[in-house]
Design a protein around this nucleic acid. Structure first.
Lengths: 341, 341
DNA sequence: GCGGGTGCCGCAAGCGGTTGTCACCCCCGA
DNA sequence: TCGGGGGTGACAACCGCTTGCGGCACCCGC
């Protein structure tokens, strides 16, 4: 460690060893493999280490063991509120499991993602891919090089943890159906998104089972402004109820609709997806399908840690966490349409 | 690198060296110190490295050089929307400068913060403290061990980058004053917060200069529910205008006020702080003091990188970035009070 | 033709730990 | 009393890369 002048040189196992008259290897073992060294010696070493302020250097350890105790967290857009709880969940589980998180924000770019992963790869024990934009094949390639868990998407052959969106959508459709809506428009997110395909399919299936009609609008960018811009295209379809790809779009919809004088929920009901920060204090408060994002993060990380520890990854089917419908103020019985939209 | 069975062994400088008949040290130099080796040899090496898929192992490098190319990003609460843009800014600047970010979420706990920093310390080249909860003295202690930049707070003796909150508040006070408000209540955040003290002081000073009256309410937790709970204590003071410690409190205020039938801005104007995600789509849209958080993050990281590269930290006074007032719908002329609050 | 630069590259010693191997000691049982 | 075995701890090699030092060519000028 070439510390800058003025900063003390880090204390090493050799210092500790000298201090209490044992070999460096004994010090090493005292920490990495307790039981392999006499309890009293170990105690002496531990005490000396404490006194000297010794901390084992994770980097040096990593060179020989190949294990860094770091996990790469790959996020498409750290600015997207959906990911906050998953980061938090992952962080908590990581410190719990003795790992530290390396952040890779790819800014929604596949190139950035590739480069970021490449840069992180040599220094992490595993990768947590939260909403990756890569192809299934690419993910599988990565997964062959290092332990990987995918979060919020399923890639066959790679351990995945996802919310039970189908069920959440089913609940939303039931809710809308019971309110008296006959046709539901799904306002789609980005085409490349795995989740989008999944959700649209779930909407169609639920529609079939519940004897409703499913209509597609979009795709739109999964942002507030994307949602606002969707209003125009909705004008043709005159829906009484829409389910948006996510809350960001739903909120954009709310704003765009309000700007055109369309009342929510009186004129049109809107359901969001994700229950993000803010979905409760927009106007009207958004009815939304809530996935347990925080649990998703921690669950994914726990699996990853297990896999790193040597557990064989469990890939037969994805870990599924329950999603629920949060009913708030943006849904109601269909009213007399004022044909304004 | 003890890679798990099934994964290929990483290729090293020795492989590359053998491949093109030079010594390993030459390969090393070809990458770390171009110019120190013959251009044609360097090219040959680079080409062989490419062919073999060689990537220099940052960990091994770190062992000898003591430089890891990692920067620790310490965030009190990753779930707080204020930090998203600073993370984003820091991330962008980090990759720009060839660093990677180690995330330390302290969950608002000083103990977590201490432990997290301790854990991160041996593997980072520097620390970016965004809104730390530690004491000035503790921060200075850390800063003696490793390069540190503090973001969104000033610690004397340690390089800091902060928004020009005083000026933002001044603008807000002017705005409120020109609307006709005579007394402004500051709804305080956590007492331990540096920013809170700073803001309250700025409110008082601006009040003095503008011939307004400044009133203090609080402290309250800097959360939406904290803001809601502040409504009760506001009832006594009957303010016509409040400035909240942050947008979270302001939004809570909005909701609590609405629940009691108090109209914003007709009965009371509210100004927030931070311009977080959601402050534009709450109802009414929040007038708020907007700090350039993203710039804060990137600026702080840039300074940190410079410091790591050997620049002497510039601590005489904090780097100050402009803040501005975003006027939206939550402020208006004081109306006839309905004495409901 | 020879001494002295200079440019390029190899040697080997680390950096701070980990770990396989082996020597040693002590205790126990025969 | 002696042999064997288990428990401890030391030695040294090694992980992949960096770097000080020095050797070797080659070129220049006198």
């Amino acid at each position: 460690m070439n510390r800058r002048p003025g900063t003390a040189k880090a204390v090493t196992i050799y210092d500790v060893a000298r201090e209490c008259g044992v070999a460096a290897s004994t010090v090493s073992r005292a920490f990495s493999r307790p039981g392999r060294v006499n309890p009293t010696t170990a105690e002496r070493i531990r005490e000396a280490a404490e006194r000297l302020g010794y901390h084992t250097n994770p980097l040096a350890r990593a060179v020989t063991t190949g294990r860094t105790s770091m996990i790469g967290l790959v996020i498409p857009d750290i600015t997207n509120p959906v990911y906050f709880p998953v980061i938090r969940g992952a962080e908590a589980a990581a410190t719990e499991a003795g790992f530290v998180l390396l952040l890779v924000d790819t800014q929604e770019s596949a190139r950035n993602e590739r480069e970021g992963i490449e840069r992180a790869l040599p220094m992490v024990d595993g990768l947590l891919l939260a909403g990756t934009r890569m192809s299934d094949a690419s993910v599988r390639v990565i997964a062959q090089q290092t332990p990987v868990v995918v979060c919020n998407r399923v890639v066959t052959g790679v351990p995945s943890v996802v919310p039970d969106n189908a069920r959440g959508i089913r609940r939303a459709m039931e809710h809308l159906g019971s309110l008296g809506h006959r046709a539901i428009t799904y306002v789609a997110g980005p085409e490349a998104s795995w989740a989008d395909g999944m959700r649209w399919r779930a909407v169609r299936e639920a529609a079939l089972e519940l004897d409703l009609r499913a209509v597609l609008a979009g795709p739109f960018p999964p942002t507030v402004s994307g949602g606002s811009s969707a209003v125009a295209s909705l004008r043709r379809q005159q829906p009484t109820a829409v389910i948006a790809y996510n809350d960001l779009i739903a909120i954009g919809l709310l704003r765009g609709l309000a700007a055109e004088g369309v009342r929510v929920p009186a004129d049109v009901s809107v359901v969001g997806f994700d229950n993000i920060f803010g979905s409760d204090f927009c106007t009207p408060a958004l009815t939304t399908v809530a996935a347990p994002m925080r649990a998703l993060g921690s669950e994914a990380l726990t699996h990853l840690a297990a896999q790193i520890a040597g557990a064989t990854p469990h890939v037969s089917r994805p870990v599924t966490l329950p999603a629920k419908l949060v009913v708030r103020d943006s849904t109601a019985r269909p009213g007399r349409r004022r044909a304004k939209i």
